[in-house]
Write a protein that binds this DNA or RNA. Structure first.
Lengths: 117, 117
DNA sequence: CCGGATCCCTTGCGATACTG
DNA sequence: CAGTATCGCAAGGGATCCGG
């Protein structure tokens, strides 16, 4: 490729960075969950369960914990009867908005590209 | 939320779209592989194996097949001794560039956010 | 309503060794 | 060099039931 040493170092950092991202956002569900919360600004457990087609309550529960640990979402328990819980994006979580939007747009294009013809 | 019926339909489509995206781009490795090819424009098997930290040859081989099936990359065998194979992004694959770049940038920020302090 | 606990099957994925 | 083949564990993930 004819890269300078400096360029090679830069590329390595970029590869590290994207692998860091995917460590946090991997799995079949996380992006969809974030998208659900993102679209509605705040969202309850059972609503997300409906939004994300095919997810089980066990998985949703686990994934929400992961996202909370990574400080992407906030969990708030409302003192109602029966209990309700709402999830919101944190400030840091909101930095994913453009990525979510791009992925949504890309998904539509991809469907056309693969299935459409 | 007070959504109109039309808005609800729209949101469902968006959820479908992002889940379509993630079906194609899921797993721990695909984004990193695409990034590697994207950075260098074209890239050989053994080079990607080096770029993507931690991947095994078995996984790389499988993931490359997946990506080819989804028309995101092209595989070209060069008639050298020993054989070399190069991978490139297809036109469709290139539409992922902005997402890759955003994810790379986000990964850097996330590292600061979580580990940094 | 929001999950946790349990059971059980499937898939991901690493390690190693081997071939054209 | 660019993969395939085989083995085997660990994680993913569905179904169902249960408790606060």
């Amino acid at each position: 490729m004819g890269c300078t040493q400096k360029e090679i170092e830069q590329h390595k950092k970029e590869m590290m960075a994207i692998q860091d991202s995917m460590d946090v956002l991997n799995g079949k569900w996380k992006m969809a969950i974030i998208s659900s919360i993102c679209i509605y600004n705040e969202r309850r457990f059972s609503d997300i369960l409906n939004d994300v087609v095919g997810i089980s309550n066990k998985m949703l529960s686990k994934e929400l914990k992961d996202l909370e640990l990574n400080k992407l979402i906030n969990r708030t328990v409302l003192d109602t009867h029966p209990i309700t819980v709402k999830y919101k994006l944190t400030k840091h979580g909101k930095t994913l908005k453009t990525i979510i939007n791009n992925l949504t747009e890309w998904g539509k294009q991809h469907r056309k590209e693969i299935i459409g013809k």
